Simulated assay, not measured.
Amino acid sequence: MSGSGTMMLETAMETRQSRRLANLLDIGRIYLEPAVHAHARGREILARFPEAELIEVASHWRIPELFGNEGAARDWVRNKRTVLVLGVKKAMTIRPNGRSADYIAPGASNGCALACVYCYVPRRKGFANPITTFVNIGQICAAIERHATKLGPRTEPGQTDPHRWVYDIGENGDASVDDLIGGNVRDQIELFRRLPNAKGSFATKYVNRDLLDHDPKGGMRIRFSMLPHRPAKLLDVRSSPMTERIRAIEDFVRAGWEVHLNFSPVVVYEGWTADYIRLFEELNDTLSPVAKAQAKAEVIFLTHNADLHDVNLHWHPKAEDMLWSPRLQETKRSENGQENLRYRAALKARMVRMFLDLMAEHLPWCPVRYAF
Rank of each mutant, 00 (worst) to 15 (best):
T132Q: 03
G182P: 05
W165C: 06
K233P: 01
L358H: 07
I137S: 13
T6A: 12
C366E: 01
R43N: 10
K90L: 14
K233Y: 02
H362Q: 09
N97K: 12
Y343Q: 00
V368T: 09
D174Y: 00
M13C: 14
A113Q: 07
Q17S: 13
K332F: 11
R350Q: 13
G28N: 09
T155N: 05
S59K: 12
M351H: 10
T93S: 08
F301R: 05
I27K: 04
C366T: 12
Q159C: 08
I140D: 00
G219N: 05
S59T: 15
A198C: 05
I144F: 05
H37R: 15
G71V: 08
T273K: 14
A105S: 07
W257T: 01
A203S: 15
N312F: 01
R209K: 09
C366P: 02
L212V: 05
I169M: 08
F355M: 15
C366V: 13
S201G: 00
K217T: 02
L363H: 01
V368F: 00
V237A: 05
R342Q: 12
A293K: 12
V259D: 01
R193P: 03
V121R: 09
A293L: 06
T133R: 11
E330C: 06
R223I: 05
D75G: 12
I189M: 05
N208S: 13
L21K: 15
H309R: 14
L32C: 04
K80I: 00
S334N: 10
M1E: 11
H314K: 14
T204A: 02
Q294F: 03
F134L: 13
S2W: 02
M7Y: 04
Y370C: 09
P96Y: 04
G218H: 02
R247L: 04
G182L: 06
R99F: 11
Y103P: 10
W165S: 11
T273P: 04
L287P: 00
A295I: 04
P96E: 08
I55L: 09
N312T: 14
Q338P: 01
R95E: 11
L84V: 03
D187H: 15
K318I: 06
F202N: 04
I246Q: 01
W324R: 15
T11L: 12
D213G: 09
V207S: 01
N129R: 06
P367K: 03
F192K: 09
